[in-house]
Simulated assay, not measured.
Amino acid sequence: MQMVTLGPSGTYSHRAARAVTDGDIAFTESVRGIVDAVADGRADRGVVPIENSIEGSVTETLDALAETDLAVLKEVVTPIQHALLAQQSGFDAVASHSQALAQCRRYLDEHHPDVDRRAVASTARGVELASENDRVAAIAHPDAGGDELNVLAEDVQDQTSNATRFFVVAPPEERSDAGGKSSFVVYPNANYPGLLLELLEPFADRGINLSRVESRPSGERLGDYLFHVDVAAGLYEDRTQAAIADVEALAENGWVRRLGSYDTAHVT
C-alpha cells in the first residue's frame, strides 16, 4: 500500500505515517500534493497535519478537505519536540516549517532575536539546509540532525504539551461510519443572524460534544463562510445521523460533506 505525506524523510508527518503503516511511504512538499495524489489514485493513503495544540488548525489542510472529496480513516496524535540544530553555535538564519517557527516564537525572540527566520516546506527541509550551510540552523526533532548537526538546545517549543493531530485520508469510497469521532464540512450558502447557532443546535439537542468548530472563507465571495466540525460521536450512531440530517436540511442551498468516522492513534 502506497502512502504519501510531507517530506523529505524525517518530518513529523513522516513519524505519524510510520505509526500507521509498514508499507512504502512517498513524499511531497505540500498538503495539496498529498490530497491530489490520493484523489487521482497515485497513492492509496495520505497523512496530512490538521491541528497543532499551540498554533491551531492547518488552514491548507482545511481548505484542501473542503475542495476535494476524500475520506478520513484515522486520527494520529503525535507529540512535537523541537530542538535547535546547527553545525556550529554561530548562525545567521534558522529554517523550518512555518508552523514550527511559530511554535518556537518565544524562544527565538528571547535567544536569537536578530536571526533571520526562513519558512520552508518542512522541518526536514530545514535540516537539509542546515546540513548544507554552516550559517543556517534548523528547528526539528532532536534526532533529525543525525551526525551532521549538533543539538544546540532542546524543547524550544513555547509549550511543553505541544502536539499535532494528523488525518489519514483515503478515496471517498473507503469512508466509514465506525469510530469514536466524526468530521464534517458544512457550506450553508446562507448568512443570517443565528445561522451558526442553528447549525450547532442539532448536536447539542442530542448530547453530542463538539470538539472543534472552525470557519473558513468559502472562496465564493467576501463574507461567505463554510464550517469544519468535529464531534465526539460516530456516524453509526442514530443520534449523529439525526443531527446531520437536520444540518443538511438547514444547508439545503449549500452542501454537507461527511469526511467520515474514525478512531485515534497516539504516537509515543
Results as ranks from 00 to 15, higher is better:
Val4Asn: 04
Thr5Pro: 07
Thr5Ile: 02
Thr5Gly: 03
Leu6Cys: 03
Leu6Thr: 00
Gly10Thr: 06
Tyr12Cys: 00
His14Val: 08
Ala17Gln: 05
Ala17Asp: 07
Arg18Lys: 14
Arg18Phe: 05
Ala19Leu: 08
Thr21Phe: 01
Asp22Asn: 11
Gly23Gln: 09
Ala26Phe: 08
Thr28Ser: 06
Val31Leu: 06
Val31Phe: 08
Ala37Trp: 03
Gly41Leu: 05
Gly41His: 02
Ala43Gly: 04
Pro49Met: 00
Pro49Asp: 01
Ile50Arg: 03
Glu51Ser: 15
Asn52Trp: 09
Ser53Pro: 05
Ser53Lys: 14
Ser53Glu: 12
Gly56Glu: 11
Ser57Gln: 12
Ser57Tyr: 09
Thr59Met: 13
Glu60Phe: 06
Val72Asn: 04
Lys74Ala: 13
Val76Thr: 03
Val76Met: 07
Val77Arg: 11
His82Gln: 13
Leu84Phe: 03
Gln87Ile: 02
Phe91His: 01
Asp92Cys: 05
Asp92Ile: 03
Leu101Ile: 06
Gln103Ile: 06
Arg106Val: 14
Arg106Ala: 15
Asp109Ser: 13
Asp114Val: 02
Val115Ser: 00
Arg117Ala: 02
Val120Tyr: 04
Ala121Asp: 12
Ser122Cys: 11
Arg125Ala: 11
Ala130Leu: 03
Ala140His: 04
Pro142Tyr: 10
Asp143Asn: 10
Ala144His: 03
Val151Ile: 15
Ala153Cys: 04
Val156Leu: 06
Gln157Val: 03
Asp158Met: 07
Asn162Met: 14
Ala163Gly: 14
Phe166Cys: 01
Phe166Ser: 00
Val169Cys: 10
Ala170Lys: 07
Glu173Lys: 01
Glu174Tyr: 00
Arg175Tyr: 11
Asp177Ser: 09
Asp177Gly: 04
Gly179Ile: 11
Gly179Arg: 07
Gly180Thr: 13
Ser183Lys: 09
Ser183Arg: 13
Ser183Cys: 15
Ser183Glu: 12
Phe184Lys: 01
Tyr187Ser: 15
Ala190Thr: 06
Ala190Arg: 08
Tyr192Thr: 04
Pro193Ile: 06
Leu195His: 08
Leu199Cys: 11
Leu200Ala: 02
Glu201His: 12
Arg206Gly: 02
Asn209Asp: 13
Val213Leu: 11
Ser215Gly: 14
Pro217Lys: 08
Gly219Thr: 10
Leu222Ser: 15
Gly223Phe: 15
Gly223Lys: 14
Tyr225His: 14
Asp230Ala: 08
Asp230Glu: 13
Asp238Gln: 15
Gln241Pro: 13
Ala242Ser: 09
Ala243Asn: 04
Ile244Cys: 06
Ala245Gly: 15
Ala245Tyr: 14
Asp246Leu: 05
Val247Lys: 05
Val247Ile: 10
Ala249Arg: 07
Ala249Lys: 05
Glu252Leu: 11
Glu252Thr: 10
Glu252Val: 07
Asn253Ile: 05
Trp255Asp: 13
Trp255Lys: 12
Arg258Glu: 12
Gly260Gln: 07
Asp263Arg: 03
Thr264Pro: 02
Thr268Asp: 14
